[in-house]
Every structure is written in C-alpha cells, then in structure tokens.
Nucleic acid binder design. Structure first.
Length: 348
RNA sequence: GGGUAGGUUGAGCAGGUGGUGAGCUCCGCUGACUGUAGAUCAGCCGUCAUACGACUGUGGGGGUUCGAUUCCCUCCCUGCCCA
C-alpha cells in the first residue's frame, strides 16, 4: 500500500497511483481528523469521493502518532490525550473515537487503536503498552458498527519473543478481519525483525486472515517478510526517498542528485513502464531535482512505487507458480540490500 | 576628465576605525530516510592532514611600524553622479 497520509499520495494524482499498479492505499485517521476533519469529509461524501480514489483504502488508526509525536501526548487506560502538531490544540483519542472517525471517513479497512512502543523501550513499558493494546482491541471491536468496513487488529509486543507471541495469540483470538503486526518499523535491526516474524507468523499458520506488517517497505524487507509469511505492507519509504532523489532499480539505488547523472542519457530503468522511464533520461531527472522542479517529485515517486509494486507482483507470480523458494536468490538480487539503516548496494 | 561609493574564500554578504578575519546565506559535493509534523534533514564546502592541527587569505605593488584589513603613496578594476 502506498501511503497517502493527508488523503493524497504526495505528488501523485489518482491516475498516477493507479499507473504504479497500486490496488489499495493507506490514509491516516489522525491527520484527517485534525485537517480537514473527518466530519467534513463525511459531509462531502466520504474519503473515496473526497480524494477521487475508487479503489480500496485502509485507514491507520492514529496509534502510531502516539509514538511519532511522542512529545505531545499523555497515555492513560482510557485513551490518549495529545496536542495537535498543527496548532497545539488539545485532543483525545480513545478506541471508540478512533473507530468512529474511521467509520466517518468510510475507509474499506479500519484498524484498531493501539499503543505502539519503540523496541528499545524497557520490557515493562512494552508489556504495559501491549496489554493495553489488547484491551483497546476489544473496545475497538465493540465500537465498530459498519458492516461494509473491515477491521484489523494490531499485534504489539516489541521484539521480545514472549511478549510478541502472547500478543499474537491475544489478537488472533479476537474476531478481526485481518492481523496487523505493529511496532516493527522503528529502531530494531533487520535481524530482530526477522526473528520477531519467526515468532509471530507460525502462530497464525492455520489462520486464513491476511497478515499485515505495518510500516516496512524496502524491497529487501518486503521479500524477507513475504518469505516469513506476510501478505500486506505499507511504507512511506519508496515515496519519501523518491522525493529526496533516491531512485530504486534492480539490485540497488541511484541518487539522482549525484553529479554523475548530469550527462546520463539513459532512463532510470530501461525496462520500467513508469511515467518517468518511458520518456525521460536520468540527466533530465537530475536537472529537475537540482532546479527543485515539481515534476521531479512526481516522476521519482511514480518510478519508486512502480518498482515496488512490480517487485511485489513478481513475488506473487512466483508464489502462484509454486516457484517461490527457488526464486529467492533471483529476487534477493533484484531487491538489493537496502533494508532501512543497513547500508545497501548503491547502484546496480 | 572630475567627484563619489566600493573591491573579503565559486556567487552574494557580515565583520574588522594599528594587536588572533575561515562567520552567514546560496551554489556545489556526499550521506540519511520504513504504520509521513519530511519536495526534508545531516555532514563537508581556501590549502595540507584520518584527526589534532598547521598554513594561506581582506584587488596589485610599495611605504611607515615590533606588528597593517586598518595609516601613507601608487596603480588596476567596478557601480553611480557631473562634464
């Protein structure tokens, strides 16, 4: 899922998003509640109509902002009080309120209000937040009324094997439509993530519901997570790094702001069907980035999302053909070694 | 020709009225970014050195002085005004 926090995948219009191959996008409850307001979006016909996107939308519950906007919040058993990052005004989210806001937005998939924690937090902090997330999960379910909207629950537990296993069992025991694995897009290492998935996913092996790993999006992360049994992802990474000049290609990445591209007549990626590669050279993109021209952000975002979604399509093809494990080396080569903070291959 | 204001590291500036000029913003170079307070942020950006640090540098030349960006002489260049 490409991420469209403010009811827009930054720099793209709906036709651009479709052209990347995306079939579902993510929007954010917290941001849309603050601006323009979920009630306003509801009056204007709901989120799909508001942003002219007729395919599925998943709304994140806003729980993540509890962590990412940490300076501004106070958590208690009933919910979270926080200050708006826009104007400092005080607001309060509870599981019931987050559910109601998502129903007003009219997303296809809503997500239970949770309390993520950084993996580096002390164990008792993780245990406390995880237990509260379970109680909030039940409250989100109880508050949910729209039959035309799915509701996913979120597993927490940090990278502690026992807590993660306990949380997986607790959330899986509830009648959610899908299972999110949260709290793994923070400061943990790729090895810790893999180990955590190896703890959680086997507990869902007989569970037919989709498994959604929240917040990861580098090609290597996607591949390794699918390998461990994950179905669904979201991440700002491909779009954000694109806006900052980093273009993904098979085997690595290009930083289009580097001077070596100023005279490069080749497309970003020769066999890529995206809006950029079909008509423009690396030299042109490099020029646009230097000039800070708006087209740079659109073209780069189109490319990285196209690359990412094409990569997922290749994985699906291998899975459906029954050749997935055998295809791992080839897919790993294509993904490169970009996994978050881990230094990756710089160019193909 | 006369007058006047200037000349500082790629560009634009700050500073400095006899006692330590390497400071800022651009440009440029590189890196980072994972449930988006991000078209953002960080580092570097005179020479040598991994670094500590050393050295050079205030238009050119000369003079005075222990010491000159500062004072004196001269020349060059630029803007503006007058003729």
């Amino acid at each position: 899922m490409p991420v469209g926090t403010n009811a827009t995948v930054k720099a793209l219009d709906p036709a651009d998003i479709r052209a990347t191959g995306a079939s579902i996008i993510l929007a954010n409850t917290y941001h849309l509640y603050l601006r323009p307001g979920h009630d306003r979006i509801e009056r204007l016909g709901g989120l799909h109509r508001f942003m002219a996107w007729d395919r599925p939308i998943l709304t994140d519950s806003g729980g993540f902002q509890v962590v990412s906007l940490g300076d501004l919040r106070v958590v208690d058993e009933d919910g979270v009080s926080f200050r708006s990052h826009l104007d400092g005004s005080v607001h309060r989210f509870t599981p019931e309120h987050a559910t109601a806001v998502q129903e007003a937005l009219g997303s296809d998939i809503a997500v239970a209000f949770d309390q993520p924690v950084m993996p580096s937090s002390p164990r008792e902090v993780v245990a406390d937040a995880t237990a509260r997330t379970h109680r909030w999960a039940e409250r989100s379910l109880a508050a949910h009324t729209r039959a035309d909207q799915a509701l996913f629950g979120i597993v927490q537990g940090g990278i502690d094997p026992d807590l993660r296993a306990e949380s997986t069992r607790a959330i899986a025991a509830l009648p959610f439509d899908g299972i999110c694995l949260g709290g793994l897009a923070g400061d943990e290492t790729p090895e810790q993530r893999d180990a955590t998935l190896d703890v959680a996913v086997p507990l869902l092996s007989d569970d037919p519901r989709p498994r959604y790993l929240m917040g990861l999006g580098s090609p290597a992360d996607l591949l390794e997570a699918v390998h461990r049994g994950i179905d669904l992802f979201d991440s700002v990474l491909p779009a954000r790094v694109a806006r900052n000049g980093q273009l993904w290609v098979p085997g690595g990445r290009l930083n289009l702001r580097n001077s070596r591209f100023l005279d490069d007549p080749e497309p970003i990626q020769a066999d890529c069907p995206c809006l950029a590669c079909g008509q423009f050279s690396r030299a042109y993109l490099a020029h646009l980035f230097r000039a800070r021209e708006l087209l740079a952000y659109r073209l780069a975002t189109c490319h990285n999302l196209t690359f990412t979604l094409d990569f997922m399509a290749r994985i699906r093809t291998a899975l459906e053909a029954g050749t997935f494990p055998a295809s791992l080396p080839e897919l790993r080569l294509r993904a490169g070694r970009i996994r978050g903070s881990e230094a990756g291959v710089k160019s193909a």
